[in-house]
C-alpha cells in the first residue's frame, strides 16, 4: 500500500494504466459500429486467433442484455468466466461514452476474477455512427462498418469513422453483390481520417481477421513497454 499515492486509492481514476496493486493493467480496446457490421464476429475471430498467446477477456454492451455475450458463449471463443455482459438500459452509447462506470466495474471485475489479463475487448451494442468510446474506458478503439451498409458511410464520416484508431471495412466479399466501390470507400476514409489506418476484411475467409489481429498485436507490443 503506497500511502503517498498520487491518486485517491483504488480505481478512483478510471484511465490509470496501473492497477491498485501497482501492476500494469490489461490493454483495453473498444469495438463499435453500426448494427450488423460484424463487431461480434470480429471479436470472436480475434479471440480464436489470439487466445493461445494472449490472455483475453471480453465485455459486451448489449441493447438487450447478454445477446452478444450469448453468441460468444455459444461459439465457445472463450471460457464463460472471461465474458461479461454490461446492462445498458437500452443505451449502449451512454454506457461506453457518457457514463462508463458499469463498464469500468466489468473490466476490473474480470481482471480480479481471471487476471492477469493482457487484453480486454469492450464491445458496444450496435449503435449509430456517432457512438465512440470514452478515453476513460478504453486505450484504443476500432470502428467496424461493412460494405453492405452503403459505400457512402466513409464519406459521411461521423466521430466513429473519422476518429477511431482503426477503421475496419468488413464483408468485402459482398461488395460485388451490393454494388459497393471498395476503392471509393478507401479514398473517402483516407480523406476523413488522414493518417489513421483502415483495413478491409472478409471474415468468411480462413484468415479474414488477420489485418485486425496484426493491428491489435502492435498495440499490445506498444502497451507492454
Amino acid at each position: 500500500m503506497h500511502l503517498d499515492h498520487t491518486h485517491d486509492g483504488p480505481a478512483a481514476v478510471s484511465a490509470d494504466a496501473a492497477r491498485p496493486d501497482g501492476t500494469r493493467r490489461a490493454l483495453r480496446i473498444g469495438l463499435g459500429g453500426p448494427v450488423g457490421s460484424g463487431k461480434t464476429a470480429t471479436v470472436a475471430a480475434l479471440c480464436r486467433l489470439l487466445r493461445d498467446r494472449v490472455s483475453i477477456a471480453v465485455v459486451t454492451n448489449d441493447i438487450y442484455t447478454r445477446e452478444d455475450a450469448a453468441f460468444l458463449l455459444r461459439n465457445a471463443v472463450l471460457p464463460p468466466e472471461r465474458i461479461q455482459a454490461v446492462e445498458t438500459g437500452a443505451c449502449p452509447h451512454t454506457a461506453i461514452r457518457d457514463d462508463i462506470s458499469a463498464n469500468l466495474e466489468a473490466v476490473e471485475d474480470l481482471e480480479d476474477a481471471v487476471g492477469p489479463l493482457d487484453l480486454i475487448l469492450v464491445e458496444s451494442g450496435g449503435d449509430n455512427l456517432t457512438a465512440t468510446f470514452s478515453r476513460g474506458l478504453v486505450d484504443a478503439q476500432i470502428f467496424v462498418i461493412d460494405v453492405a451498409g452503403g459505400d457512402d458511410i466513409p464519406r459521411k464520416g461521423g466521430p466513429g469513422v473519422s476518429t477511431a484508431d482503426l477503421l475496419v471495412v468488413n464483408k468485402t466479399d459482398l461488395a460485388p453483390y451490393v454494388g459497393s466501390d471498395l476503392d471509393r470507400m478507401a479514398r473517402d476514409a483516407a480523406a476523413q481520417r488522414g493518417e489513421l489506418p483502415v483495413v478491409f476484411t472478409s471474415l468468411t475467409g480462413a484468415d479474414g481477421v488477420a489485418p485486425v489481429a496484426d493491428w491489435v498485436r502492435a498495440r499490445l507490443a506498444d502497451w507492454a513497454v
Partner: peptide, 11 residues
C-alpha cells in the same frame, strides 16, 4: 442525471 454513476441502466 448525467452524473456518471451508472443510474441510466436502471428502471
Amino acid at each position: 442525471g448525467r452524473f456518471p454513476a451508472g443510474g441510466h441502466a436502471h428502471s
